[in-house]
């Protein structure tokens, strides 16, 4: 990664937060929030063996970049990097990392939460839970586009 880090990325590689934290850190920042979404073993009483993530990669990366643009508009002075892993993930593996820097703490927290909420609504990534006795694609939210393109 390092110098070649893509700030809005979908990858099959294991994730590490440090390069993303470095990427968003700059002299104007007074706060950095680093969020890691990890694979949970138990959901509603069901034990997950592992997860499988799939993405429409070019559109997902475009949507992640749009979320980043939205954050920079809503919270001026912020810098954002988001990476989502796809493929098979084991319990406690990191599925998503969101790094946000802002001049002040409050914006960094708010913008980071906004990013994960937007990811769950609009980014074409799907999760399949694999249990001991079955499997299922997850997707229970019902986002509908309001005005066509965008």
């Amino acid at each position: 990664m390092g110098a070649e880090l893509k700030p809005f990325h979908v990858t099959e590689e294991p994730l590490d937060g440090a390069p993303y934290m470095d990427y968003v850190t700059h002299p104007g920042a007074g706060a950095v929030t680093l969020f890691a979404g990890t694979v949970r073993e138990w959901t509603n009483g069901k034990r997950t063996m592992y997860l499988k993530y799939e993405a429409y990669v070019p559109m997902a990366e475009k949507k992640l970049a749009q979320i980043g643009d939205g954050i920079m508009e809503k919270w001026p002075g912020s810098r954002v990097a988001i990476v989502h892993r796809i493929g098979e993930l084991a319990i406690s593996d990191i599925a998503v990392i969101i790094a946000v820097s802002s001049p002040h703490r409050r914006a960094a927290y708010e913008a980071n939460e906004y990013a994960i909420e937007q990811i769950k609504k609009v980014v074409p990534i799907w999760k399949k839970e694999i249990w001991e006795d079955g499997e299922e694609w997850i997707g229970d939210q019902a986002y509908k586009p309001e005005g066509g393109k965008g």
Binding site: Y56, M59, A95, I119, K120, P124, W126, W137, G139
Partner: peptide
């Protein structure tokens, strides 16, 4: 043209 079932990233 892509058909997008309800997403579940994150």
């Amino acid at each position: 043209v892509a058909f997008i079932p309800p997403v579940s990233g994150g």
